[in-house]
Amino acid sequence: MKPETIQTLKKLERLDKRWVFLLVALAVLIPLIVPVKAPMTVSQATKDYYEQIEKLPAGSLVLLSCDYDPGSKAELYPMTVATLRHLFRKDLRVVILSLWPAGPPMVELALNELKAEPGFKKRYGYHYVNLGFKEGREAVMVDMGRSIHDVFPVDFHGANVNTLSLMGEVQNYASFRLFVNLSVGYPGTKEYVQYAQSRFRITMIAGAGAVSVPEYSAYLQSGQLSGMLMGIAGCAEYEQLLEEPGLALTFMNAQTAGHLLIIVLIIAGNVIYFMIRKKGDK
């Protein structure tokens, strides 16, 4: 190998990381500004998530726990919107709660987005309720198996839950046909599987931030989760099944371009490293 080539490789090895940041920014921005429709296959986990909601009879009660905050909005918010849209489209009634302090405003944001859509006819307190946040993590999960009214005496807006028509039919986990958990960490899906699904034998599906997917996949394989949306890709698949394009499908091209760049950078970094090391050995 020529000495100039070695010098170039060494320069590349010491490349200022800000150039990498710039490349990643461009890789992500260009597909967002110039969108291209890329083909996509739907995974079995997403199909199962969709089917679990799809097969419920109209009027069934569904419990939805949104355990995330604005830091995970990118992945979990599109899931919240898509899931709520699906639940309302199927005429299911939803009780929403959160074990993360900043979760309820994210739920309100999603509900306001749906309310602004033409044809939205669902009524608060009758078709859906936002119970808000409750401190206590695992203790709350276990206590909801006894009485949800005791854990949430008032909703997110401060109204007594006994004044809400929908809550008259709710007692504990047994009142619900399905439990949906959208989470990205602690407390979230793992704890709900351990303290609610295993103990109270409820049918549970989950939407998870990609970073949590390897941990939660074991629950999918064991059947403790009956379906799962795996990160933004899983949500894009779900939006495709719903035939309701949302944020996740918009993000997918940028996501793919970003991943391709990271793969190229990892391969290039390793090739440069080994080439320089090989030359050094000689």
Binding site: V24, A25, V28, L29, L32, G71, S72, K73, A74, E75, V184, G209, A210, V211, G231, I232, A233, L247, T250, F251, A254, Q255, G258, H259, I262
Partner: peptide, 12 residues
């Protein structure tokens, strides 16, 4: 994948 999604969301 998660970190990339966060960046995309902000850029969007």
């Amino acid at each position: 994948m998660t970190r990339m999604a966060l960046l995309i969301d902000r850029f969007y």
